[in-house]
Design a protein around this nucleic acid. Structure first.
Length: 277
DNA sequence: AACAATGACAACCGCCGCAGT
DNA sequence: GACTGCGGCGGTTGTCATTGT
């Protein structure tokens, strides 16, 4: 309490991560493992081929440890599954949210390859709106439509919500097309990534791909050849059969419990508690 | 074509719990 | 027991892409 935020130090980078920073971070974690986030930035810069960067007067990763952790956990971790949320996952999220509330990390723990941040965003962007569209309060899960106390404004808002947007947006997949690549940016790197995806045995038509959405300026002067293709591959996680089956299993497990007698709250509670462990 | 509105999601902020001292 | 620092979490914001007018 009362401590200054760790990112407040003067001179630390903020905003989007550059490929160089990503690579430094990944290299370091692959060799030393996770943890020690506080000291990681300094150490990470001293790892590997930093000669070229040393020429520019710094060797460290100019990020606070907290930012490093966040970047790793939400984006760089090799087991992260990128791509659209499947209908099964979608349903699972809704059910888990009804059990656990906004405990995103717990929910994410039950969805292999998904991050709490991703689920949180997905919930805020899609699911809560969809539930509202269905006339359900996303928090209480009670029907809203019968509420007679709506103000005139609320009523008009609601009817507007109901009448419009029958379409349900899936999360924007991945920015892999040339046209959608960030401005001022070479497309070279992206080609590497797409190739890596295909070569790695992934379905070429798959929507799942790693696409670094990096800041344009930072990309300049950074040669794509410097990137280790394997690193890029490792950032791509396709939905393997194992993943699907485990997800299915989990899903069935929930269905089984949830489809049972509604009065069986005892079991539901026990189940909810098991998630907290 | 230009601009505005909306969507998507990465990143930041501040708080909290816990372990170490 | 009090204090300190770190890691983790959830809420929120900022930025860029896309879509609509």
């Amino acid at each position: 309490m009362g401590r200054a935020p760790c990112c407040s130090k003067v001179g630390l980078h903020r905003g989007p991560w550059s490929p160089r920073e990503d690579k430094l971070l990944v290299n370091y974690i692959q060799s030393h493992g996770e943890g020690n986030w506080k000291s990681l930035p300094k150490k990470a810069g001293k790892f590997g081929n930093t000669f070229r960067f040393s020429l520019f007067g710094f060797t460290g990763l100019l990020r606070c440890g907290k930012s490093c952790r966040l970047r790793w956990m939400n984006y760089l971790r090799p087991d992260i599954k990128r791509g659209n949320i499947t209908p099964e996952e979608d349903d699972l999220i809704i059910r888990l949210h009804s059990l656990l509330g906004n405990r995103w990390s717990l929910i994410a723990g039950r969805l292999p390859g998904r991050t709490d941040n991703e689920i949180k965003n997905y919930w805020n962007c899609h699911l809560s709106k969809r539930l509202l569209n269905q006339g359900t309060d996303p928090n209480t899960r009670k029907k809203l439509s019968q509420q007679a106390t709506n103000t005139r404004k609320n009523i008009s808002d609601t009817s507007k919500t109901f009448s419009e947007s029958p379409k349900i947006h899936l999360p924007k997949p991945i920015r892999v097309t040339k046209s959608s690549f960030p401005r001022n940016q070479s497309f070279e790197l992206d080609n590497h990534q797409c190739n890596a995806n295909t070569q790695a045995g992934g379905n070429p038509s798959s929507d799942y791909a790693y696409a670094a959405d990096h800041g344009g300026e930072n990309m300049r002067g950074f040669l794509a050849d410097d990137l280790d293709n394997q690193f890029e591959c490792e950032s791509i996680v396709l939905v393997s059969e194992d993943d699907s089956s485990s997800l299915e299993k989990l899903y069935e497990e929930y269905l089984q419990i949830l489809n049972q007698n509604d009065d069986d709250e005892m079991q539901l509670d026990t189940f909810a508690q098991s998630l907290l462990i």
